[in-house]
Each structure stands twice: as structure tokens, then as C-alpha cells.
């Protein structure tokens, strides 16, 4: 510090000057630190996220839009994409139903097994998709525990469409249920109780009071479900076997294409899925803002 406090002289001016001076150098260092931190974060995001994304777009345009388009519009690619979309549709419908029931049971009901329901609904988040595939393989695979039963019934699950459905339903289980459970907890029961007191039936209460309050959360959970179903790879690879035209999904198609160095199709499909996920993300962000507003209002 430049100025020393002089006992005889009026103290205020030098001290003020010193403070300003100190604040200036500190301010400079602070500003430099701020810029450095900003630069580190931008570099980090560029290395981990933005660079790779841009590289895929650049690579696809280098290969040539025409070639990529013809590879992505070829029958095997379209069949694989169609398979993925079918899985998305099934998991969205099933999770809309089971997720809603499960969330209401979790939050509004008290019963034996509630803790178990909550823990099991969370579990898929902690389990590797390959492991899920393996678990079902051991249960319903050709040499699985239930193989004799399935054979007697003539049901084929593994390396067939039902296997893909089971794997996808497993990995998407937590999203809708957790999202709804969280919002049901947040909004509380006062409005539902008011409706019940005023003589509304259970379904009236649900449709006119509970459902409008959780609609945004349901949409959010189902979008997450769709994204997860579209992107699932490990479980559908193990359970489906990626048989072209039968159990090949968009992700296993990319995997096989990249392995075979059929890069136009592989990178093209990767870009298609990337683009779909950007659209899903935009919708998710939109709902996130709406949800934030809705929760702010009910509180």
C-alpha cells in the first residue's frame, strides 16, 4: 500500500486513496481471474462437448450431403430408424401410464412395499445397460432360467422385438415416475383435498385438479423417456443382437456401420439422432421454463 496513515494530518483523504488504490489492483487481479476462469470453462466445453459436435457436422459435410443422404435413406437405415421410433412410441405410452400410477402411489399412498417401489424405480439409473441386457438374457434367453416355459409357449423374447421392448422399458423406467413424483410432492395435497371436500369424485379430482398441475412434468418426463429410448444402445445390442431388418435399431445400425467403415451411413445416422436430440432438448428447455413458472405459482 502506498499511503500510510498519518496521525497529525486529516486521516480521511489518504485512507480513502489507499482503499481506492488497493481496490484497483485487487480489481485488476479479480478481473484477470474472471477472464481466466471464463476462458478455462469455454475451453473445457469446447474440448468435451462443442468440438466433437462440430466435428461430426464437418465430417458429414466433408463426406458429402448426397452420399450421406442416400445412405441414411437406404432401406436398412430406414428400417433401423423405424424400429427405434417404434420403441420410443411404446416406451412413451407405457411410461405415461405406469409412471403416473407409480408416482401417485409413491407420493400419495402409504403402503407396505412403498420404499421398495421407490428404490426399484431408481435402480435403472445406477445399472449399466449391458448388465440389464445380461440380466434378461439369463432370465429369458435361449439358455435362461425361464427358457423351458418360453419354449413351451413358443415365445421368442431375446433376439426378437419383445427383447428390444423389455430392454428399452427397463432403462426408461425412472424418468417419468421420478419427475411426476417430484412435482406431486412439491404441489402438495391442499387442492386435491379441496376438490374432494367439494364432492368431486376420484376421477374428477384427478382430471381437473391433479392432472393439470402435473401436465408439464409429465411432458418433461416423457420427453426424457423418448430421448433415452431413442439413444439406448447396450441393452438393445445384447437383447436384440442387431439383426438387420429385424432387431437393428438406429444406434446399433450406427455401431455396425462404423465397424464396417460404412461411414456415410454411420455418421449420417449419428447426425440424424444428434439432430433429433437437439430438438428434444429444445422442447425440454421450453418445458423447464414453464415448469419453473408453474411451481413458482403454486407455492
Amino acid at each position: 500500500m502506498r499511503a500510510e496513515r498519518d496521525v497529525g494530518a486529516p486521516a480521511i483523504a489518504p485512507v480513502e486513496a489507499a482503499k481506492l488504490d488497493a481496490r484497483d489492483t485487487r480489481g485488476d487481479r479479480l478481473a484477470a481471474g474472471r477472464v481466466a476462469l471464463g476462458a478455462v470453462v469455454v475451453l473445457y466445453l469446447a474440448v468435451v462437448l462443442l468440438g466433437p459436435m462440430g466435428a461430426l457436422v464437418a465430417e458429414v459435410s466433408r463426406i458429402g450431403i448426397g452420399e450421406v443422404l442416400s445412405a441414411v435413406l437406404a432401406p436398412p437405415a430406414l428400417e433401423a430408424l423405424g424400429m427405434s421410433i417404434a420403441l420410443v412410441a411404446i416406451s412413451v405410452v407405457v411410461n405415461a401410464f405406469v409412471g403416473t400410477i407409480g408416482a401417485i402411489a409413491l407420493v400419495r399412498h402409504r403402503f407396505v412395499g412403498r420404499g421398495l417401489l421407490g428404490a426399484l424405480a431408481d435402480l435403472p439409473l445406477a445399472v449399466s445397460p449391458v448388465m440389464i441386457g445380461l440380466a434378461f438374457l439369463l432370465l429369458v434367453g435361449r439358455e435362461g432360467v425361464l427358457a423351458p416355459v418360453l419354449e413351451a409357449l413358443d415365445w421368442k423374447i431375446v433376439y426378437a422385438f419383445p427383447g428390444l421392448v423389455i430392454g428399452t422399458l427397463f432403462v426408461t423406467l425412472p424418468y417419468t415416475m421420478r419427475e411426476l413424483a417430484y412435482v406431486l410432492e412439491e404441489i402438495g395435497t391442499s387442492e386435491e383435498e379441496a376438490a374432494a371436500t367439494l364432492g368431486a369424485s376420484a376421477w374428477q379430482t384427478f382430471w381437473h385438479v391433479t392432472f393439470p398441475n402435473v401436465r408439464v412434468a409429465l411432458g418433461y418426463g416423457l420427453l426424457m423417456t423418448a430421448a433415452r429410448a431413442l439413444g439406448e444402445f447396450g441393452a438393445v445390442l445384447v437383447l436384440g443382437g442387431s439383426i438387420s431388418g429385424q432387431t437393428q435399431t438406429a444406434t446399433t445400425f450406427i455401431h455396425d456401420a462404423v465397424e464396417e467403415r460404412a461411414l456415410a451411413g454411420g455418421y449420417g445416422m449419428a447426425l440424424v439422432l444428434g439432430a433429433i436430440s437437439v430438438v428434444l432438448l429444445a422442447l425440454l428447455e421450453h418445458l423447464k421454463h414453464r415448469r419453473a413458472r408453474a411451481l413458482g405459482r403454486t407455492k
Binding site: 466445453l45 461430426l56 430421448a227 436430440s277 432438448l281 425440454l284
Partner: peptide
């Protein structure tokens, strides 16, 4: 926009993430 992009890995298939990394590096 940057804040929204941070959520992108939640929506991008992880296999696609791998392809992106492989293409760049």
C-alpha cells in the same frame, strides 16, 4: 444457449457421443 447446450448429453445417445469424440480426436 450455452447453458442449454450443457444439457445436451442428457439427450444425445451415448453411442453418438462416442462417434463425435472419435471423429474429432
Amino acid at each position: 444457449a450455452l447453458s442449454a447446450l450443457v444439457d445436451l448429453p442428457l439427450a444425445v445417445p451415448t453411442l453418438v457421443a462416442g462417434v463425435m469424440i472419435a471423429v474429432l480426436y
